[in-house]
């Protein structure tokens, strides 16, 4: 455990060194957040409730989605790709520490740094310029926090599984892009799935993606009843277990493959 804490610490320090990138990110994410706020304002002009949500809640959704997106940044897929490309993966595997444990610890470290570097500034800017994202029902807070943790894990596992493709394919730049777009469009991070046609929405609700963004955010803005939220969190947990199992199996296989490649 101590080893991983050390990795987390180094990653935090590493992330803190690139100051210019931090300001750049904040400015860019602010612009994106504000433009989406105007997009929704224009849509809701002269309309009350659309898709069981009013304009106010939708703006909360936008602010919180931007905040959450900072937490859901993963680097594991690029990390794997790089280490396979450069061949460092062989020496990494020799170390007396789990390779994916290190990648996970690195991503945790990066996210901890980002909470202060990006998340809080974006939350403050969003509150000042768009709307203070007040939670619909404070009693849902525990549910919200648990679902955020689960969504973080699901997101990371999907990224790690994608990254493992690099063990055989080596170059996965295009695949990473495919994954990024799929995730952005199918997770409700930009546009909630409830605006989609009923059939499409139903299909998406059986996939893991909506449980990354949309579930925590709907709990936060209070869309749907608590019973519905609990049921959806059940599905979220099932996906977490499935992905974790897939990850463990794939990890064993992938590690074997790299050994063979190394000779």
């Amino acid at each position: 455990m101590k080893k991983y804490l050390y990795v987390i610490k180094t990653q935090i320090i590493k992330s803190m060194t690139y100051e210019f990138n931090v300001y750049g990110n904040i400015i860019m994410q602010t612009i994106i957040m504000i433009t989406s706020a105007y997009f929704w304002r224009a849509l809701y002009k002269g309309q009350g409730m659309v898709g069981d949500v009013d304009a106010e809640s939708m703006l909360t959704y936008v602010v919180l989605s931007s905040v959450l997106s900072v937490l859901l940044i993963t680097n594991v897929e690029r990390r794997i790709e790089k280490s396979v490309e450069k061949g460092t993966v062989a020496t990494d595997l020799m170390k007396p520490i789990n390779l994916f444990g290190v990648y996970f610890a690195e991503d945790i470290g990066a996210v901890i740094a980002l909470v202060f570097q990006n998340m809080l500034p974006i939350l403050i800017i969003g509150s000042l310029m768009i709307r203070v994202p007040v939670m619909a029902d404070v009693h849902d807070l525990p549910l919200f926090l648990i679902s955020v943790i689960e969504s973080f894990l699901i997101n990371w596992l999907i990224a790690a599984l994608f990254g493992m493709i690099a063990f055989t394919a080596v170059n996965i730049d295009a695949l990473i892009q495919v994954k990024k777009h799929l995730l952005r469009l199918l997770s409700g991070s930009i546009i909630p799935v409830w605006f989609f046609p009923a059939g499409v929405a139903r299909v998406l609700e059986s996939l893991p993606f909506v449980y990354i963004y949309q579930l925590p955010l709907s709990i936060y803005i209070g869309r749907g009843t608590r019973a519905e939220h609990l049921r959806q969190m059940g599905i979220q947990s099932i996906w977490l277990v499935i992905l974790a199992a897939a990850f463990l199996i794939a990890q064993k296989k992938a590690a074997g493959k790299v050994m063979v490649q190394g000779g």
Binding site: N171, I172, D173, A174, L175, Q177, V178, H181, L182
Partner: peptide, 15 residues
């Protein structure tokens, strides 16, 4: 690099 073309051929239009 034909495999790379296939990747971009899917990724860009998809987006």
């Amino acid at each position: 690099y034909p495999s790379n073309i296939a990747g971009w051929l899917i990724s860009n239009p998809l987006q």
